[in-house]
């Protein structure tokens, strides 16, 4: 078995590709990341879907999950698990609606469990197993971005690449939800993903630089949409 001491070049890329793959069983397919709430209120259509995704990346995903992932990466590299847990609680508290907290922790708990098994015996496997045990014992909420940050840090994937990878996984998941809500088709989905790539670069750079104290975005309309969504009589997605 190939067990690189650190992940660089193709090894790092392969880890990113695996963890950000839309086929990775993170539960992302069941989330719309706020999109279905906007759709239910008639506030987004095929012409504005790109603007909404950019807004969510810049105002919510970047200051929230992406920043928490970046700060977790540093703490996990130092194996400072108490600090990782503090970041987990901070991110959990920043998610105002219960559907957002529930989606994130259901995903994170399963994700860390799967990766701890898949990466057991390979480089980083012990650190991933350590965090998986924290999550399993419910000493910490287990948010998805925190679990993902631990996985990337443990396997030696650089923080910038880790944040970009997770933001792109987010964008793919959002675009998949847009497709199923008939806001895009298979062609416009790919245009959407190409359009947001430079945005992801900027958002990732900001997240890597943003301090821990600034974790969490300010998106009152998004929070209102989410609050309505979690009480909607009909919905396809968990968020």
């Amino acid at each position: 078995m190939v067990t690189p001491k650190d992940a660089s070049g193709p090894a790092s890329l392969l880890i990113s590709l695996q963890l950000s793959d839309s086929a990775f069983p993170s539960g992302f397919y069941a989330m719309s990341h706020g999109l279905e709430g906007f759709h239910q209120q008639g506030l987004v259509d095929g012409d504005t879907i790109g603007d909404l995704l950019e807004d969510i990346l810049v105002r919510t995903a970047g200051p929230g999950d992406a920043t928490a992932l970046a700060r977790t990466h540093g703490a996990a590299v130092r194996q400072d698990w108490d600090h990782v847990a503090e970041l987990d609680r901070l991110l959990f508290a920043s998610k105002l609606n219960s559907e957002l907290r529930r989606s994130s922790t259901r995903s994170g708990r399963q994700l860390i469990d799967i990766v701890s098994e898949a990466y057991a015996g390979t480089h980083g496997g012990d650190d991933i197993a350590t965090w998986a045990e924290w999550v399993r014992s419910r000493r910490t909420p287990g948010c998805q971005a925190i679990a993902t940050g631990v996985c990337y840090a443990a396997t030696g994937v650089a923080v910038e690449q880790a944040v970009v990878s997770d933001l792109f996984a987010f964008a793919i998941s959002f675009a998949g939800a847009a497709l199923r809500l008939r806001l895009t088709d298979h062609r416009s989905t790919q245009k959407l993903l190409r359009r947001v790539q430079p945005v992801i670069e900027e958002v990732a750079a900001d997240a890597v630089a943003r301090p821990e104290a600034d974790i969490g975005g300010f998106t009152p309309v998004g929070d209102i949409m989410s609050a309505g969504h979690e009480r909607a009589p009909a919905r396809l997605f968990t968020s």
Partner: peptide, 28 residues
């Protein structure tokens, strides 16, 4: 009740994450 993101077969076959999590929460 667990939402399935428009893909019921995905929720029980390809990526049962949300169902496994719901089951664990219920058992807890």
């Amino acid at each position: 009740g667990v939402e399935t993101g428009a893909c019921p077969h995905t929720a029980v076959r390809d990526d049962p994450t949300m169902n496994l999590a719901a089951g664990e929460e219920m058992l807890e």
